[in-house]
Simulated assay, not measured.
Amino acid sequence: MFSSLDNAKAADVLEELEEDVQVSLIRTLSTDKAADILEEMPADEAADVLDGLNENKAEELLNNMEKEISDEVRELMEYEEYLVGSIMNTDFIACPIYYTVADVVNDICQSKEEIDEIYYVYVVSDENKLVGIVSLRDLIISKQDKKLEDIMIKEVIYMKDTDEIRDLVKAVSKYNLFSIPVIDEQMHIIGIVNINDIFYEITKSNKRYR
């Protein structure tokens, strides 16, 4: 039944399954079919599935995926499993500080990327450094000609990709965030961690980080 699904639907189903079931299903598919399904998944989810396979099988699937996607997945797989970078999602909305509300809405509507969960728009400088965030609620209630600079929150809670996940769990629990941006050493936003991944880590933390 799973192999008969189209790639997008199969990817949706695979994301909802336990890791051991994901790995078992991927192993039953041809290399081409499995690679096509993994391409439809968020990079962090695909990385998690590939981490459960042996190195040769994972490399075979990566080599059969589109290069841009496989490169993104490889980068996530290089992080140690206890680091924030290993669970970050690289699909997010980032807009220049000079954008208006209308510009942001237009970008979201025209975006070819399918982003399932949008809680915040991340505001970046000309150097692509994170300088603020705007909640979806504030975006909706603001006038169309308002600039992001005028409505953004400048005091941003963020994590570095090299921070430990247990510190992420503490920060999110403390500040009641739906998602948190992830930056590199130069303050460039490179990903986010959403509430679903955060909840999963909080659940694990009850055993791991006590």
Rank of each mutant, 00 (worst) to 15 (best):
S4F: 11
S4V: 07
N7H: 13
A11R: 00
E15M: 11
E15N: 09
E16S: 11
L17P: 06
E18Y: 13
E18C: 04
E19D: 13
E19N: 12
Q22Y: 02
Q22M: 04
S24R: 14
R27A: 08
L29V: 00
T31A: 14
L38S: 04
A46N: 05
A46R: 03
D48M: 08
D48Y: 06
D51F: 03
N54L: 02
N54I: 00
N56H: 14
N56K: 15
K57M: 10
A58I: 02
E60I: 04
N63H: 11
N64K: 12
M65Y: 04
E68Q: 10
S70W: 06
S70Q: 02
S70M: 07
V73N: 01
R74A: 02
E75T: 02
L76A: 03
L76E: 01
L76Q: 01
M77L: 08
E78K: 15
E78T: 13
Y79E: 02
Y82T: 10
S86L: 08
S86W: 09
T90P: 06
F92G: 02
F92K: 07
I93P: 00
A94F: 00
A94H: 08
C95N: 01
C95T: 07
P96D: 05
Y98R: 13
T100C: 08
V101Y: 07
A102I: 09
V105Q: 11
D107G: 10
D107I: 10
K112E: 15
K112A: 12
E113C: 04
E114N: 15
I115S: 06
D116I: 10
Y119D: 11
S125I: 06
S125K: 05
S125L: 08
N128K: 14
N128Y: 11
L130V: 02
G132R: 04
V134T: 03
S135P: 07
L136I: 11
L139F: 04
I140P: 05
I141V: 13
S142L: 03
K143G: 15
Q144S: 14
K146T: 14
K146R: 14
K146H: 13
K147R: 15
L148D: 05
E149F: 13
D150L: 01
M152G: 00
I153L: 12
V156I: 04
V156Q: 08
I157W: 11
M159L: 13
K160Y: 15
D161P: 07
T162P: 10
D163Q: 00
D163H: 09
E164D: 14
I165H: 04
D167Q: 11
A171M: 12
A171G: 02
S173D: 09
S173E: 08
S173R: 14
N176A: 11
D184T: 08
Q186P: 02
H188Y: 09
I189D: 00
I192E: 01
F199C: 10
I202G: 03
T203P: 05
K204V: 03
S205V: 05
R210C: 03
